[in-house]
Amino acid sequence: MVTIEALSFGYRADEPIIDGLDAAFAPGEVWAVTGPSGRGKSTLLYLVGLLLTPWAGRIGLGGVGAANALSDHERSRLRGAHIGFVFQDAVLDPARSVLDNVTEPALYAGMARPEARRRAGDLLERFGVRLRADHRPGEVSGGQAQRVALCRALLTAPSLLLADEPTGNLDADSAGIVIDALTAAAHADGATVLIASHDERIVAACDRVLAL
């Protein structure tokens, strides 16, 4: 369960972007976060992902009442163990193999390397990029790179998935794979999924909508 209470935040003191927001996202639900450009969709995802510190209010994650008030060390631990990010472009490490990119969160989540490699192999297989495991990110297509990023986000089976325009750069087929994977994470594995998007097809595929 992810809860937001009286959340306020802005990048500048005189310019609040999110002002007194309340919301609750249950496990197994896929939420579309919509709104016009510049309204604060990405900002909300970064706040819930504990990468930004709110001015006021509380963000509850699982059993933690006010995760936003924790130390950097504890917030990082929560992020590594329970939160998966998917960005508009894949944000892979260009110097490392596809497999290494997928296993990267294991270090911060405290997952043993052999287990991480096994899980990564399974995920790459599931998303049809197993053959690219030894390639560098520069040697795969945009759609493949986004599937690799998806594998990375799913590696630790996080209870919260945050996707910011995950299909923005993809064709319809690749976008379909990404949407199916995110909804499956919620419906089959019980994760809470937040997708910030303008894409009508995505919004249609989500269970609920938070319009900012």
Binding site: H73, R75, S76, F85, Y108
Partner: peptide
Amino acid sequence: RRRALGASR
């Protein structure tokens, strides 16, 4: 990227 994946300062 590392920070988003769970690396602390």
